[in-house]
Computed example of a mutant assay.
Amino acid sequence: MSTLNDVVINKLSGGLGRRSPEQDMISGLLFNSFEGVEFDKVERLASLEDAEAFGITKTIDNYTGQSVYYQIQQFFRINPSGDLYVMATTGDSYESIVEKAMDMQEKANGNIRQLAIIYSGPTTFEQTEAAIEKAKTQTEKAYAEYMPFEIILEGKGFDATSEAKSVYLDSFDAENVSVVVAMDLEKAEKYPNSAAVGLALGALSKAKVSENIAWIEKFNLTGEGFSKPGFVGGQEIKSLGTLRTINDKRYIFTQTHTGLAGIYFNDSHTCTAGTEDFAYIENNRTINKATRLLRAALLPKLASPVLVDIDGKLPQSVSKSFEGLCRSALEGMVANQEVSAFDVYVDPKQNILATSELKVKAEITPVGTARKIKVDLGFKNPFGIEQA
């Protein structure tokens, strides 16, 4: 059939880049309740405007001693595409609020990947230490229930000049807990005992699971609400020596770099020894994602029949089938540069008839982080030493 001459325009879709939020960016903010907001109810926010519609307005911070609006504002400033669950709860101490972390995760159907916790009441550094212990318990429960997440705490009561109020965090052996002591000095009067955990949470939600939030090229933190780096309580950064000491103690803070504009995080420390596998948040987020993916791939096979050969061993077709399920689950992480490589092995010699247990060994090679870049620099004489 012939057609008339014409200009044909096909309507395409996808050019705006709109997408469903990646699961890795789903974050949470837990805080003590105040009048006007229903407590122990999880609300999912996609913008600062959503927070205001929920009842979390700028004036809330003015009369409650809270920093909740500020934290949410910073979260969405760093990651406008962020996905944030919030929950107000009751409690008369920092530790009692932290103890509600797992309750919030369950109410969010296990979707939260990183959770910041704030508390508006008077809090000492000793109570912050107790909060770290509580947070450790909460993250361990979360992993046991197959809904792992990271907890980001405010370093309330922190004092950079005091050994008693700036202890080494590696002694807590809390690999899924981090403490932020960064604060904008210009906000210190309004939020005297608060840390910029919303800033850290926004950076984490923006980062791939393999990325360090201290990556200079990607995470310049400068902007409305954060323009002059300091510590909790309005303490100024006195020297590089102080920063090195606080970094060695494994706190997360902000800093500037000579010759480069902007404000940046120092690192992504967790409250465990720097020699441990999970000493940094990106290590945890990577293993947490792999954990969720592998479980989702294998769960449909739970209680399924497994054929064995005449010797009771797994036929190659069976072992390779399970290996294939795991490989398919992890291949996306390699493609997205979240892991460098992985290996999966199902031993065909295992005695599943006796144990009713199928063992899978999975290993992932993480993406490295250039925490230090060393350059050997010197002069060179093109004529050589003998001719000089």
Rank of each mutant, 00 (worst) to 15 (best):
residue 240 L to D: 13
residue 242 T to A: 10
residue 242 T to V: 13
residue 243 L to Q: 08
residue 243 L to Y: 04
residue 244 R to N: 13
residue 248 D to W: 08
residue 249 K to T: 10
residue 249 K to P: 05
residue 249 K to W: 05
residue 250 R to K: 14
residue 251 Y to K: 03
residue 251 Y to I: 08
residue 252 I to W: 01
residue 252 I to K: 02
residue 253 F to P: 02
residue 254 T to L: 02
residue 254 T to M: 02
residue 255 Q to K: 15
residue 256 T to G: 09
residue 257 H to I: 15
residue 258 T to W: 09
residue 258 T to I: 15
residue 259 G to S: 03
residue 260 L to G: 06
residue 261 A to R: 15
residue 262 G to I: 13
residue 263 I to S: 00
residue 265 F to W: 11
residue 265 F to M: 10
residue 266 N to E: 06
residue 267 D to T: 14
residue 269 H to L: 11
residue 269 H to M: 11
residue 270 T to G: 01
residue 270 T to Q: 00
residue 270 T to H: 00
residue 271 C to H: 03
residue 272 T to H: 02
residue 272 T to W: 00
residue 274 G to S: 13
residue 274 G to F: 06
residue 275 T to R: 06
residue 276 E to T: 15
residue 277 D to Y: 14
residue 278 F to H: 11
residue 278 F to T: 12
residue 279 A to V: 04
residue 280 Y to F: 14
residue 281 I to Y: 00
residue 281 I to A: 01
residue 284 N to C: 11
residue 284 N to V: 08
residue 284 N to E: 02
residue 285 R to N: 01
residue 285 R to S: 01
residue 286 T to D: 02
residue 286 T to V: 11
residue 286 T to G: 05
residue 286 T to P: 04
residue 286 T to E: 02
residue 286 T to H: 04
residue 291 T to I: 13
residue 292 R to L: 09
residue 292 R to M: 08
residue 292 R to C: 03
residue 293 L to T: 08
residue 293 L to H: 05
residue 294 L to I: 15
residue 295 R to Y: 12
residue 297 A to P: 05
residue 297 A to V: 07
residue 297 A to L: 04
residue 298 L to W: 06
residue 298 L to T: 10
residue 298 L to S: 07
residue 298 L to R: 05
residue 299 L to Q: 09
residue 300 P to K: 09
residue 300 P to M: 08
residue 301 K to S: 15
residue 301 K to D: 11
residue 301 K to Y: 14
residue 302 L to M: 15
residue 302 L to Q: 14
residue 302 L to Y: 14
residue 302 L to H: 15
residue 304 S to Y: 05
residue 305 P to V: 06
residue 306 V to I: 14
residue 307 L to C: 06
residue 307 L to P: 03
residue 309 D to L: 03
residue 310 I to Q: 09
residue 312 G to A: 00
residue 313 K to L: 07
residue 314 L to D: 00
residue 315 P to Q: 12
residue 316 Q to G: 15
residue 319 S to F: 01
residue 319 S to P: 12
residue 319 S to R: 03
residue 319 S to V: 05
residue 320 K to M: 12
residue 320 K to E: 12
residue 320 K to P: 07
residue 322 F to D: 00
residue 323 E to R: 11
residue 324 G to I: 10
residue 325 L to M: 09
residue 326 C to S: 10
residue 326 C to G: 04
residue 327 R to I: 13
residue 327 R to D: 11
residue 327 R to Y: 07
residue 327 R to W: 07
residue 328 S to V: 14
residue 329 A to W: 00
residue 329 A to V: 05
residue 330 L to W: 08
residue 330 L to K: 10
residue 330 L to Q: 10
residue 330 L to G: 06
residue 331 E to Q: 13
residue 331 E to F: 09
residue 332 G to C: 08
residue 333 M to K: 07
residue 333 M to E: 06
residue 334 V to A: 04
residue 335 A to W: 07
residue 335 A to Y: 09
residue 335 A to E: 08
residue 336 N to Q: 09
residue 336 N to S: 13
residue 339 V to I: 15
residue 340 S to L: 15
residue 341 A to R: 12
residue 341 A to S: 13
